[in-house]
């Protein structure tokens, strides 16, 4: 099982269990993702892809089932350890980016590194490497609110990579992008994949799942995976 980056076993999420407004966005989802591959979870809105991705990214805890990332069971971890795992091993690119607008690009990228107790020089070093890789060197000191949509997205990607993670999760990354930026984004993903990253993207954008870098497509509907 060394080959597997991710394995989920009958993962289910139930909100308001037992009550009248009970909602089950994800039901009995089991999947396996090999290392170094890129997988797209495809499905209309409301199909549970974001919830599934959030559970894999340790943002939400599953109600039932197991999630194993890189050989480590993460679904039943207490909050502190789940946080640590999230911080050290996972990179998440949010649909709305969720960058801090008042901070500079550099500060946003370095933000996940503060809990590590790294010195400022080291942090800056790592951040600068990523900036260069994603053509953002000249924007390092700019405040995020002054950037264009594409630049913000690249900042979000850099931030998700700065912790040296190997599993990258992206939730509807192209939702706010035009065709060119979508192509740019997928280009970056391809580059990362070639460097050995495992990529999991949730999207309903045809441009995404029709791209050549995609190894596998998983379809979801109504919280379940379609066979």
């Amino acid at each position: 099982m060394d080959e597997l980056m991710l394995k989920t076993v009958k993962v289910t999420k139930i909100y308001n269990q037992g009550k009248q407004n009970e909602v089950i966005p994800v039901r009995d989802v089991s999947l396996k993702v090999k290392k170094g591959t890129s997988v797209v979870i495809k499905g209309p809105s409301g199909s549970g892809k974001t919830t599934l991705l959030s559970m894999i990214g340790c943002q939400i805890k599953p109600t039932h089932g197991e999630i194993v990332v890189n050989g480590k069971q993460v679904s039943k971890l207490p909050e502190k350890f789940a946080n640590r795992h999230k911080r050290e091993h996972i990179g998440f690119v949010f649909q709305q980016f969720h960058l801090i607008p008042d901070l500079s690009v550099l500060d946003n990228i370095m933000l996940p590194l503060l809990p590590f107790g790294m010195r400022p020089a080291e942090r800056k070093n790592r951040a600068m490497k990523l900036l260069t890789q994603f053509d953002l060197e000249k924007r390092g000191r700019f405040k995020v609110k002054d950037l264009s949509g594409g630049e913000q997205q690249r900042t979000a990607i850099c931030r998700s990579l700065v912790n040296g993670c190997s599993l990258l999760l992206a939730d509807e990354p192209t939702a706010h992008l035009d065709g060119q930026l979508t192509a740019d984004f997928l280009g970056y993903m391809a580059e990362l994949k070639s460097k050995g990253y495992t990529i999991l993207i949730a999207s309903h954008d045809p441009a995404v799942f029709e791209h050549e870098m995609v190894d596998r497509i998983i379809e979801m509907k109504g919280g379940e995976i379609l066979p």
Partner: peptide, 20 residues
């Protein structure tokens, strides 16, 4: 990218918090 040194020196972490 390689992994950063995990959960580093406590004092440095406090300094980072104060910086922030």
């Amino acid at each position: 990218m390689d992994k950063p040194t995990t959960s580093g020196n406590w004092l440095e972490r406090q300094r980072n918090i104060v910086d922030y």
